[in-house]
Write a protein that binds this DNA or RNA. Structure first.
Lengths: 350, 350
DNA sequence: CAGCCCTGCTTAATCGTTTAAGCAAAATAC
DNA sequence: GTATTTTGCTTAAACGATTAAGCAGGGCTG
């Protein structure tokens, strides 16, 4: 059996040039002692024959597969496209492939998925943990992308800073009574965003947090959140902790006849695909996934690849140069100054 | 160098039992001739030692890696989570891993990404093509998930049928003047959906198609689509060809003071994450990605794994048992009967 | 009882690469 | 001019599985 591989191997190049396979290996990897002229001839012959190294054989010999695992436990995470794209890109630039593992939100399935990755011999993995869960040590280096305040976090967007930027934006528009709309109270990310928002809004601002999952636990999934009533109570801005919640808030308010941004402002987080296509387009805060992915992959590779100094294959959480990457405020049409009637605390001018 | 693998290998089991490694291999794979008792003893010892086979070594020997590639050329496709999850799940059930390749929408990058996958020795790949592009033969079996009317398609949702269901739903509510809202005219998927919608709406219904990309080419990205004017013209339903377009339509109409579903109905396609959280929740049509993924993976595996009969490793487009999987209409709150004033063609009763 | 087949194992080659070790010849040192 | 290093290559042994081929011995047939 054993379907023969398509192209030529090192021995083919070696035979064609009358040298040994070891010399070809040394020439192409630049490791051993080979004369410059021969290196050139080998390179040329390899190109001529269309040589492609067998990563499988290399993996068997070296013990490293050049593949990283990517674990996203949160089911159908709408950030998936952004994250996957950034991680794959960063990994590809570093010469690594990315194997995905989805656990459909289930903890047992997740463990199983991680084991499948390990059996495939991955060199390391990137995990974006489900809200509030900690990742135990598995059998390989792990980069965790969560939020800087989580213990064991490798690198992440500075959610607190993002919240703070958004808070200052709303405060500068004159909002003094703001409803924060979150999904799940156990999310470290969302709690960091809340902290930043409160700090950015300042002490004079009045804040209240509404957790969607708590409301739904009582009234059922997809129930109204009662935001029109909140608007009537005098809340002039609804700062959601994710774009999904922002979308929910925006449509519920619109449906209730409350126009955004004239009557109230709505903001989100993450700049997901729909943020720019809804009317009014959402003011939100974007994470720099490209930089985050680069840092995470770099941190992994530092541990994986033998540098001569560091002990290799440390099977724990990896640390990065910096654990937080700034977020970027994107002001669109969903925010504006509050109605005069509500802007009690705003100084009349400026 | 060559970091030693963690666990024991076949030789370890063989040594512990005083047999040869070949016998261990035969026992565990059930291939050669080994006595039942010995098989049992070998199984037990393997379990006791915590033996994990080296997939890398197996790949080198057999020429098959047990890994499939997944290529999603359409940048930041919001269907990504659904697709990735379904494909990964189907592949995992069949004992395969999934390597991702993102091409950031660029054709050159896509070719490069596919080559990287091939160098990694994948056994086959699943491609969800960018609208309207055809996939050339690469060096391995390929399953294409697009739409049944595309030549070379392996398996896909029956978008025409989905459109037809939606058309009949709208017709039965009494809609006779419907605006179809699409993104790009070159999408096979969207054109199939249009065909189904028109057929489902019937001959008496008046249809017009609005392509967002055409409007944006004139008025700039994110511009208003003029839907309120369309409503004034007498359109009572806005059937978007994707949930993203539906979301855009819904928010633009709401913002224009047109309430959904009382004044006009809005529908989408795909049942994306936000369809159920917006107010009013979107009536849409869902594809059965689980079944589609199962069929695609099964078709690939039929070609990849030696059955004794079929020639293995045919490096072309793979065919499935069936090329189309029914879609499921999901009626939520965004559709209703048209306003009486507009329902000119509706019979007064029933 | 000779011949044959079947059973149950072993031996050894192989996949394609890496890398330690070895070994001439050339270059340098003293 | 001999002793030592350096250069440039080769040989061979891995990595861990699969699998064709071989080889005893027991059971069967005729």
């Amino acid at each position: 059996m054993a379907i023969p591989r398509s192209g030529p191997n090192m021995s083919a190049i070696a035979a064609a040039l009358g040298v040994s396979a070891a010399t070809v290996s040394n020439a192409l990897s630049g490791k051993g002692r080979v004369s410059p002229e021969l290196i050139e001839r080998i390179r040329a012959k390899a190109a001529e024959l269309g040589y492609v190294p067998s990563l499988t054989a290399r993996a068997l010999r070296t013990g490293r597969t050049g593949v990283l695992g990517m674990v996203l436990p949160d089911i159908a995470n709408p950030l998936f496209p952004q994250i996957a794209q950034a991680i794959e890109n960063a990994a590809a630039n570093a010469g690594y492939g990315v194997l995905i593992a989805d656990s459909r939100g289930d903890i047992a399935t997740q463990t199983e998925a991680i084991n499948r990755l390990l059996e495939r011999g991955i060199d390391g993995m990137v995990i974006v943990p489900r809200r509030g869960t900690r990742i135990a040590d598995v059998g390989c280096p792990v980069a965790v992308i969560d939020t800087p305040s989580t213990p064991g976090n490798t690198v992440a967007a500075d959610h607190w800073d993002g919240g703070s930027q958004m808070g200052r934006h709303l405060a500068s528009l004159g909002h003094r009574k703001v409803l924060l709309v979150g999904g799940n109270p156990n999310s470290n990310v969302q709690n960091d965003r809340i902290g930043g928002l409160k700090a950015g809004l300042g002490n004079e601002a009045e804040c209240e947090v509404l957790w969607i999952e708590k409301v739904e636990a009582v009234s059922g999934a997809g129930c109204p959140l009662g935001l029109s009533a909140k608007a009537a109570e005098g809340f002039t801005a609804f700062a959601a902790l994710s774009d999904l919640s922002a979308l929910r808030a925006l449509t519920e308010l619109q449906r209730g006849g409350i126009s955004v941004p004239e009557m109230v402002s709505v903001t989100g987080f993450d700049d997901l695909i729909w943020s720019s296509v809804v009317t009014p387009a959402l003011t939100t805060v974007r994470m720099d996934m490209g930089t985050i992915a680069d840092l995470a992959i770099a941190a992994l590779i530092r541990v994986i690849e033998p540098d001569g100094e560091a002990e290799p294959e440390a099977a724990g959480h990896v640390v990065s140069e910096t654990d937080r990457v700034p977020m970027q405020l994107i002001v669109r049409q969903s925010t504006g100054a509050p109605l005069k009637s509500h802007a009690q605390n705003k100084t009349t001018d400026q």
